[in-house]
């Protein structure tokens, strides 16, 4: 499904180490199953040769991880799919990542598989899986099954906002473009609901939350050193939603805090063990910003000033 295959990335990674462009390379190591590659940092060509892979299950966005990684000495190379580069730009803008410490190789992307969706389709154990020519083939105890990509792609990929890399040192794929795949359709549908129905929709979705904090921890826009929801002196550090109010409080505060900075990378919804469509909250904010302040895409360029922290005479609230 991915445009560059594992071998091409391996060769590139080895080359970047050998010609001393970087000191280490971030990528994926093969997992135990077909779909669970581990993010890994490679220091030598041998390690790369032995362990590095890349396929349609390599979904994690590496940008946030660079916040910590760039505090270490040396330079690190990372392969990035288009959506990752928006998060990266946003983090560079917020001075969380030092550009001189990274080397970004942009790789093409046809989308990543959502294993939960896939599991629903197979209904039995996933023994092997491989992506090829627009289809995913899965080996199960009941025989092989083949699915078209559209059936198993992650939601964020079905409505991918852009195949364009907005940051890179080198592009391994052809340059590409922003896409319009109707990512606001669902938000617009929800807007048309009655206030009660809308409230009920979000109440019922958010009531599933187990407050594992994975959405926050994976979110590239959530980079506070200490989160108010993890700090006992704040009085709001409860792990569990003690009541319905807290349940919503966490998500609403989070959505407000990332408003204007959320690039719609989709990590929150990807990691949520309860399958809560968190992206809908964030997309509503994005759509509103577009309407009130003109179309704005967080992370499009380094150094942009988000409309919510900028003040202009033309702002609707002036």
């Amino acid at each position: 499904m991915q445009k560059q295959n594992g071998t091409e990335l391996k060769n590139k990674a080895k080359q970047l180490l050998q010609n001393k462009t970087v000191d280490r390379v971030a990528g994926f190591c093969a997992g135990e199953f077909a779909y669970d590659p581990s993010p890994c940092v490679f220091y030598s060509a041998e390690e790369i040769e032995e362990n590095m892979i890349y396929d349609c299950f390599c979904s994690p966005n590496f940008s946030k991880f660079l916040v910590k990684e760039t505090k270490k000495p040396g330079r690190i190379a990372v392969f990035m799919k288009p959506c990752d580069t928006y998060s990266l730009n946003q983090l560079i803008t917020e001075h969380k990542i030092d550009k001189d410490k990274i080397y970004i190789a942009g790789i093409g992307c046809d989308g990543m598989v959502d294993v939960f969706k896939l599991r629903n389709k197979t209904g039995s154990a996933i023994l092997k899986a491989s992506c090829d020519n627009g289809a995913l083939t899965v080996k199960t105890p009941d025989g092989d099954m083949t699915f078209a990509f559209d059936e198993v792609l992650a939601e964020r990929c079905l409505v991918c906002k852009s195949k364009k890399h907005v940051y890179y040192d080198e592009l391994l794929c052809e340059p590409s473009f922003e896409t319009d795949t109707g990512r606001f359709d669902k938000v617009e549908q929800i807007e048309k609901m009655s206030a009660d129905a809308r409230y009920e929709f979000f109440r019922s979705e958010l009531s599933k939350c187990i407050r594992c904090n994975a959405c926050r921890d994976a979110c590239p826009a959530c980079t506070c050193e200490t989160c108010v929801f993890g700090e006992s002196s704040s009085g709001a550090e409860s792990r569990e939603n003690a009541n319905e109010f807290e349940e919503k409080l966490f998500h609403i505060i989070r959505a407000y805090h990332v408003a204007g900075r959320c690039t719609d990378c989709g990590e929150c919804s990807r990691v949520c063990p309860q399958r809560i469509p968190l992206h809908l909250l964030n997309r509503k904010f994005i759509l509103d910003i577009n309407r009130f302040y003109g179309v704005y895409q967080a992370g499009e360029t380094v150094g942009q000033i988000p409309p919510l922290t900028d003040k202009n005479e033309s702002d609707p609230e002036v």
Binding site: C40, P60, I210, A214, D217, P273
Partner: peptide, 16 residues
């Protein structure tokens, strides 16, 4: 070090 390098420190594993 290697195993934990990318652990997010979330509570997913614990809570499930």
């Amino acid at each position: 070090d290697k195993l934990s390098a990318h652990c997010l420190g979330c509570g997913t594993c614990t809570y499930l």
